[in-house]
């Protein structure tokens, strides 16, 4: 295939995804360069997780193509790593075993895998090498003392750190993350963001990061797209939620490989950016329910009074 030459590692071409009659994604185009950190935001239920499932290969698009290095993605495989909000770790394995899980699973069933290796002539890293890397990662995640704990014995943040390492051990071409930090408290969350950026700088991996937190999206990404079911089509018709979501914003935020100090989250520029994105993708005029609230206290917001002024 010739797509290789385009310089993009991941291409989502004209993708449409529908379940029965319900259209979730409508005509989504997205190309990702190697090393890009793409934040994906959007209103709840707009299809962010659906997009991610197309990239991991869990689902096939109704129409269009999802390609990794010019190859259509067929199945979940080691080229794409994933980290979820929950259930990323295997509950029956300890932290270290979880990190080494790829190594164990790849070699099973042993005789068959051995023969396949011989045929393909692909050299596998030795177990000792893998163990070495696992220990280094564990150290970097400040988890060296916790290697033999089970997931249920770890805190939420520790669990996600292990999950990230587990995925990175495979050196995936693209790392997909679906709201990985959404269940964490603000302190742990910032900690995790730093940890992720540290790894991003170190490994120069390509990341697809879904979040519903705009601040997080702006802070982490080198590029940001917003997916939304609320947009005005070419014919000037407002979609409501019937047509399926499209990419409504695509912003370059900073150079590939650059990570900023967490302080920028508080800056005026970040605030402005967030407001703009909110207007573009989460425009309240489409959210019909807003003026149906009834608040009674005299100092509360009363939508009707707003109208009069």
């Amino acid at each position: 295939m010739t797509m290789e030459t385009s310089g993009y590692i991941l291409r989502i071409d004209d993708v449409r995804q529908q379940y029965g009659q319900k259209v979730v994604l409508n005509d989504v185009h997205l190309s990702l360069k190697a090393g890009e950190f793409l934040s994906v935001v959007g209103p709840s239920g707009c299809g962010k997780s659906t997009l991610l499932r197309l990239v991991t290969g869990e689902e096939w698009p109704t129409a269009g193509r999802v390609m990794l290095n010019g190859q259509i993605i067929q199945r979940p495989g080691p080229d794409v790593g994933v980290v979820y909000q929950h259930y990323s770790l295997f509950p029956h394995l300890t932290a270290l075993e979880n990190i080494m899980a790829g190594e164990r699973l790849r070699r099973w069933p042993q005789p068959i895998q051995g023969m396949l290796d011989l045929v393909s002539g692909e050299a596998r890293r030795s177990r000792a090498e893998v163990q070495d890397e696992a220990m280094r990662f564990l150290d970097r995640a400040r988890m060296s003392g916790h290697g033999d704990k089970y997931p249920h014995q770890l805190s939420g943040g520790q669990r996600q750190r292990v999950a990230i390492i587990q995925a990175l051990m495979q050196h995936p071409k693209v790392l997909c993350m679906d709201e990985p930090f959404s269940a964490l408290d603000p302190g742990t969350r910032e900690d995790m963001q730093m940890f992720l950026l540290e790894l991003y700088e170190l490994l120069r991996m390509t990341v697809l990061f879904v979040t519903h937190d705009l601040e997080e999206a702006v802070y982490l990404g080198t590029r940001l797209v917003a997916l939304s079911q609320f947009y005005t089509g070419e014919d000037g018709v407002q979609s409501g939620a019937t047509l399926g979501a499209q990419i409504v914003t695509d912003r370059h935020l900073r150079e590939i490989g650059v990570a900023l100090a967490p302080g920028v989250k508080a800056s005026a520029e970040t605030g402005r950016l967030i407001q703009e994105i909110r207007r573009e993708a989460f425009d309240p005029s489409y959210c019909q329910h807003v003026d149906t609230f009834t608040l009674h206290h005299k100092d509360s917001w009363h939508p009707e009074e707003d109208d009069e002024t």
Binding site: T56, G77, V80, G81, S88, G102, Q170
Partner: peptide, 10 residues
Amino acid sequence: EQVTKALTLG
């Protein structure tokens, strides 16, 4: 998620 995860681990 566990199934996808395992497949992505090879």
